Structure formats: structure tokens, C-alpha cells
Simulated scan of single mutants.
Amino acid sequence: MKIRNYPLPGIALIFILLLTACGGNTNSSQQAASSTGPIDSVQSVAPNSSASAATGETRKFTDSKSRQVEIPVNPQKIVYIGSDPGDLLALDVKPVGATLSVIASQVVYPDLLKGIEDVGYPAALEKVLSLTPDLIIFSDWDESALESLSEIAPTVVIGENDTYTRLRQIADLLGKQDIAEQKITEYETKAANVKKQLMLDLKPGETATVFLQLGKTLYVMGHQGISVSLYDMLGFAPPPKVQELINQDELFSEISEEILPSYAGEEIFILGDEAEETSSALNQLLGSAIWKSIPAVKNGHTYAADSKWNFDDIITRTRLLEELPKLMAKGS
């Protein structure tokens, strides 16, 4: 992923909200019931609880950068660096530490983050070291600390792929393949039921677009975040201009209000956070003549949601299944 450098921590929130659970690469133009219980049941990994950990048994694992990393067969103290801890938690594994300082208040599963030490964002190496991890899972756009982290513990890079690919890669890493497949099967079963409940009766090629307002900046989403559920699960199609972004592996793009209509689909989902600046900008947008001129708006096919749904880990996507009927019933 190629991205220009930006000051932190302000831009960190924007990128984490936008790059959550995303697949593919981006570039500088895009600034912008498991075997042990239900999907929300997460078990802490207790240190020194296995023979392999005690004996130091290891194996080779090839990560997303084609690096062969020697990892513990049964890691006991995992630190997660990235914006999708839901990928790990879905496998009933709770890391001892993770980069939570920005996303803890932005995800739909804060209940599952209890007991996880925040290592900061960017990750503070001293904090990571103090947790004495035996494995670090790295899934972040900023790879500047990768070498330093690798000196603390074996560090495996997880690619910014689609939901199932990421989940399966981590499952392979941790020996949780059966749980991953069960989570996927459970999700698809629930998704099929929700589709029946919604009775969408989509026309072939019916389009939908996701716009995200963060502060004063407006983004259009490609194939990432909540768009994954709209396109892959519900069966909407991206409008031509959004499809262009997807074809160019652009996960999102900053746009101006003036060109917003050219990206608008027959259904529009508009996301925003609770920040005062965002609320003010959204109110201005929704009251503008440009917004009111869009056919989807005129037809009452717009839906407003919190930006916390702009993640595509399987925990968020599963909880979104419960939210979608309520969300789409509130179309304006």
C-alpha cells in the first residue's frame, strides 16, 4: 500500500475508519457459532498452557509479504498491530495487546476488547516489548515499524484482503481452520435469512453507493467496509464511477460535493461519526441543493448509519445483519 505521510493522531482515525477490514491495495490518490460458542464468545489465551509453548516447538509460516517466519506452533501471547482485531477475536482468540487507542471507540464490539492492553497507535515498541509476546500479527498500512517489531517476536504480516481470505489466513496461522470455516458458514446462513427478511427484489444491476463523512471531508467507498456487505451479500452493484475505483484497487476516494452525484447509485448509504464537525458537515450536505437533486434522494432511497459499521471483519458483518433490517426500514 502506498500512502503519503500524514500527521498523527488525527489522520490515524481517518485511515483506520477507511482501511478497516479492506481488501486490495490503495495509493496516494485515496486519502481518504464456533466449536466453543457463538461468534461473540472470545476466550483469553492463557500463557504457558501447552506443551508446545513450554518446549518452544516452532514451524515455518509464509506471510503476505512472502517472508518465511518461524513461529510458535501454539502461540500463547499474541500482540495484534492493525485495525481489524475482529479478525482475531472471531477465532475465539484474545490477544494480550493490540492497537486500540484509535479504534476502541469506533468498532461495534467494544465489549470484546476488555482485557486487551492498548499498545498505542502507532504501536509503542516499549509497550509491545513489556507484554513479552511470542507472536505479533501485523496488518497495518504503515510498515515502518515492521523490522523493529520483528526483533521483539516473530512477526507475521496479514494482507489487506477480503473478509474470508484474512480470516482464513489468520486461522491457518493459529491452527483455527475449523473455527474459521464454521464462522463463515454461520454468517452465510444468517445472511441468507436476512436477505429473505428484507425482500429486496433487486433489479439486475441495481446500484448502491456508500458515502462517508468524516469531519469536513467526504469520501466515496469502493469495495471495503459496509460496501462488502451491500455488494457481496445483498447483491447490489456498484455504479460505474465506483466500479472504476474498484477496478483500480482504490478502496475509497476523497470527493467534493459537486461531483457526488456522479458516484450516486440507486440506493445511497451515508455514514458519519458523532463528532460535532462531522454532524455539522453532514447537515450542510443533506440540506444542499446538490444532495436534494440526486434521484435516490428524491425517491427516498437513502439510509444513514454510524461509521462504526464501516468495517468488514466477520464480527462486524454478523452484527450488521441484525442492524440492516432496521437501517433499511429508516430509509428517507
Score class of each variant (00 low, 15 high):
R4Q: 10
A12Y: 00
F15M: 14
L19T: 02
G23K: 03
Q30E: 13
Q30R: 12
A32S: 07
A33I: 08
G37P: 13
A46L: 15
N48P: 02
S50M: 11
A54Y: 05
T55Y: 03
S64H: 11
Q68L: 13
P72N: 04
P72I: 03
P75H: 00
Y80K: 04
I81M: 04
G82F: 11
D84W: 12
L89Q: 02
A90M: 14
A90Q: 10
K94W: 00
V96I: 15
L100N: 10
L100E: 08
S105F: 12
D111S: 15
L113M: 14
E117P: 07
L125D: 03
T132N: 15
D134G: 06
L135W: 12
F138A: 06
D140L: 13
D142S: 11
E143L: 14
E143W: 06
S148Q: 14
L149N: 10
E160Y: 09
E160I: 11
N161C: 10
T165N: 09
A171R: 02
L173A: 05
K176G: 12
K176R: 15
K176M: 10
Q177M: 06
D178N: 09
D178C: 00
A180Q: 07
A180S: 08
Q182P: 01
T185C: 07
Y187R: 07
V194I: 10
K195R: 15
G205M: 08
E206K: 15
T209H: 05
L214S: 09
L214M: 14
L214Q: 13
I226M: 13
D232W: 01
G235Y: 05
F236P: 00
P239M: 03
P239W: 06
K241L: 08
V242C: 05
N247G: 01
D249C: 03
L251Q: 09
F252C: 06
S256P: 03
S256E: 03
E257P: 04
E257A: 11
E258W: 04
L260G: 02
L260H: 02
P261N: 09
S262R: 08
D273E: 08
T278I: 07
S279A: 12
N283R: 02
L285A: 00
L285Y: 00
L286P: 00
G287M: 11
A289I: 13
W291Y: 14
K292P: 01
V297A: 04
A305W: 00
S307M: 05
D312E: 14
D312Y: 01
I315W: 04
R319I: 08
E322G: 13
E323W: 04
E323T: 05
K326A: 04
G331S: 11
G331Y: 06
